[in-house]
Nucleic acid binder design. Structure first.
Lengths: 211, 211, 211, 211
DNA sequence: AATGAATGAGGTTTCATTCAT
DNA sequence: TATGAATGAAACCTCATTCAT
C-alpha cells in the first residue's frame, strides 16, 4: 500500500535537486527519536504524529502498522551494519585484526547512530511472526560476523584458547553493544567518538589476545 | 494501602510456625517472571493476576499501582546487590582484586537472578517522579562500587592509566550487565555459572590490568 | 476471559430466586435489537453499549470481541431451532406431514423471534475462521432437516417427483426464511401469527404435494 | 498508470459514435461485484478502487459519495426490472398467466444478475433521506406488479381466495427473491436457469391456483 | 482524469484503577 | 482478602472525503 521508496539514507541520494524531501524519511526519523527514548510499546502513533506534525491517521500512508514501522527501522539498521561487516569481510586481514576492525567500525556506527542502536538491541522482541523471525536472523548474522573472527583467531593462535569461542563472542558482542551507553550520561566532559572507540578496541584487544 | 513487608522469609515469624509463603512474594515473583519476558509496559495487571491465579482487581491488595509494583521489584534487586557490594567493601583487598571480586559476585547474582537483572537494567526508565530519582540513585551506587575500585587501582598502579577511569568503569559495568545474556541462547551446550563467571573475570582482568 | 455462563435463555432458568438478572442476557438482547435493525457491520459496540446503558469498554466483560458476540447470538438461535427440529424428528409421522410440521414450527419460531431470525439469515457471513465454519454447519443442519423430509416424501410418493429434491428443498427453505417479512410492513391490518403460519403451510403443502 | 479501457475493441471508436464503454460502467461493475460479496457497509471505496485499478481518490470523478454509488446500482436494477414488468403489463393475458410470466421473467433476470439482485434486496436499507424514499418506492412498485395480478386473479376465480391477497403476494415475492440462492451452493451438479425457472413457476403456480 | 497526501471522525479493543459486595 | 462489574482514557487502525498538483 505504501509505495514510498526512499533510499536507505546512505549518501549519494542527494542527486535530484528538485527532489522534495521525502516524507518517509521524516517519519522514520521521528519514530526513531521517540522509540529510542520511550521504547516501542510506550511509543504511541500519536507521539510520532505529533513530532512529524500530522494527524495520527495520516501516518498510515507511510506504513501499514506500528509493527511494520518498527520493522523498517530495524531493517535500515541491519542493512547499514551488514554493509560494514561485508566490507570488512572482503579485506585480507588476520583474524584478530579483522575482529578489532569490526569492533571499531561497529562501535563507530553505534556512536553515530545511538538511537537506532538502542532500538536495534532492545525492541526487536516486539516483532511477531515472520517479521520476528527475519529480524532474529539479522541478530544472528551480526553475532556470526564476530564469532567467525574469534574461531579463526583461535585457530591461528592469535586469540586465547582457554575460553570457549562462544563465550568470547558474547563478551565482545556485549562490549560493542554497550558502547552506546558510554557517551550520554550526566555531568563531566563527554568523550568524543575516537577516544571511546580507541579505548574499547584496546580493552577488547587486550582481553581476547592470546598471551 | 497494604505494603505488608513480612520477613525476608527468615524463620520465626510469630504465629504461623515456620515460614508461610507470603502472598506478597508470590505476586512479586509472578510479576518478575512476566515483566522480564514482555517488558514492563507490555505487561498488564491481568497478566500478573493470571499467573498468580487471582482476579486482577484483587492484586490491588498487594500494591497501590503498577508502577509501585515495579519499584518494589527494583528495590529488592537493589538491596540484594547493595549487600553484595557492602560486604566486598568491608574486605581488606587491593583495588584490582576488589574490582574483580565485585565482578565475580555481581555476575553470580545476575546469573542466579536473570529475570530480576533484566528488569533492573531495562525497566527502570519507566518509573516517574520521586521513584525514578530514587532508583536512578541505585544505579549510580552500583556504578560507584566499580568506579571506586578503578580509581584506586589506577592510583596504586595495578590498573591501566592510558584509559580514563570513566571509560574503564563503563566497560566493566557493561561487561557485567551483559553477562545475563551469556547463558540463554539457542543450541549447543549451555555453560554453567562457574564457567561463565571465571571467563568473565579473566577477560575483564586482562583488559584493565596495567601492563 | 468472560466467565458469565448464562443459560441459553430457554425456560427453566428462573430457578434461583435471588438470581440477579443476568446482565449477559441484557447485552445479548440489546445487540440483537440493534444488529437486526442496522446489520452487524453497521452496528457499533457503542450502539450496543448505549442501549444497555454502560460505557462501551464495559461490554468487554461479556464478550471478547464483537464477532464473538455475533457468534453467541447465532448460536442461541441455532440451539433453539435445532431443538424444534429434533423434537419433530422423534415423532412418528409420514414425511410430508413431518415436512409441513417443520414448516409450521419453524415459521412460528421465526415470527416469534423476527430479530434473531434476521440476524441468523443475513449476518452469518461476517463470521470468520473457525466460527464461520461452525455456523455454516448450523445452516446446513437446518437445510437437512427439510431435505430429509423431501427425499423421504418423494420415496413414499406423497411429494412430487417431477422436480429435483434439491430445488424443492430450496423452495421450502426460502419460503420459511421469508416468512419473517410477512408481518412488518406498512399500512393495513397486520396478520397474526396463526393466520400467517396457516397460510404458509397451505401454500407450501399445495406446491410440493404429489398430484 | 494509465489503464485506458477504451471501447470493447469494436472498431469505430473515433469520434465516439455508438456507445463507447464508459469508465462509469467499469466502476459500477466493480462496485457490484464487491458489494454483493461483502455487503455495502463492509465495502470500502478502496476495495472498489483496487478492483478498478485506480486510486481511491480518483473514484470521486465518477460519483459524489459512496451512497450515491449504491443508489445508482439500485437504480439500474430497478430500471431493468421495471422494464420487464411494463412489458408484461402491456400483454393481454389472464391474471394468473400474467403472474406466472412475471415470476418467470423476474427469476430469469435475478439468475442472470445474481449480484445485482443481492444488492437490490439487502442493501437498500443503507440509503438515507430522499434516496431511501425513492428506492423504497421501487420496492413497492415491484410488489405491486405482483399484487395487481393476485387481486385480479382472485377476482376472476383463477387464484385461490382462502388466503388474503397480501399474504399471497408476499409468498410469491419471497419465492422470487429467494431464487437467487438456488444455484450457487456447494457440491452436486448445478442447475441451469431454465430448470430452475421452470421449477419455480410450477411450484408457485400450484400453490396459488384456485382448486 | 488521475494522483496521493492529508484530514477528522469513528471503529474495536485494552487496560489501570476503583468499589460495592 | 477476594470478587467482578464498571469506568474512562487511550491505544491502534480504517475510511469517506477533499484538494493541490
Amino acid at each position: 500500500m505504501t509505495q514510498s521508496k526512499a533510499g536507505t539514507g546512505a549518501p549519494g541520494d542527494a542527486a535530484k535537486p528538485r527532489e522534495r524531501y521525502n516524507r518517509d524519511d521524516v517519519v522514520i526519523a521521528a519514530a526513531i527519536s521517540v522509540m529510542s527514548e520511550k521504547g516501542y510499546p510506550s511509543t504511541s502513533i500519536q507521539d510520532v504524529a505529533s513530532r512529524v506534525g500530522v494527524l495520527k491517521g495520516s501516518l498510515y500512508h507511510y506504513f501499514n502498522s506500528k509493527e511494520e514501522l518498527l520493522f523498517r527501522i530495524l531493517q535500515e539498521s541491519h542493512e547499514q551494519t551488514r554493509e560494514i561487516h561485508e566490507r570488512i569481510e572482503q579485506l585480507d586481514l588476520p583474524p584478530l585484526e579483522k575482529l578489532l576492525l569490526n569492533v571499531r567500525r561497529s562501535s563507530e556506527w553505534f556512536l553515530a547512530n545511538v538511537e537506532r542502536a538502542n532500538i536495534f538491541f532492545t525492541e526487536m522482541k516486539h516483532l511477531t511472526g515472520e517479521r520476528h523471525a527475519t529480524a532474529a536472523g539479522w541478530g544472528r548474522a551480526f553475532e556470526r560476523s564476530i564469532s567467525d573472527c574469534v574461531v579463526a583467531g583461535q585457530a591461528d593462535g592469535t586469540i586465547r584458547k582457554d575460553i570457549d569461542q562462544r563465550l568470547l563472542t558474547r563478551f565482545v558482542l556485549g562490549s560493542v553493544n554497550n558502547v552506546r551507553f558510554w557517551p550520554s550520561r550526566r555531568s563531566g566532559r563527554q568523550f568524543d567518538t575516537d577516544t571511546i572507540v580507541d579505548a574499547l578496541v584496546a580493552l577488547v584487544g587486550d582481553s581476547v589476545r592470546a598471551r
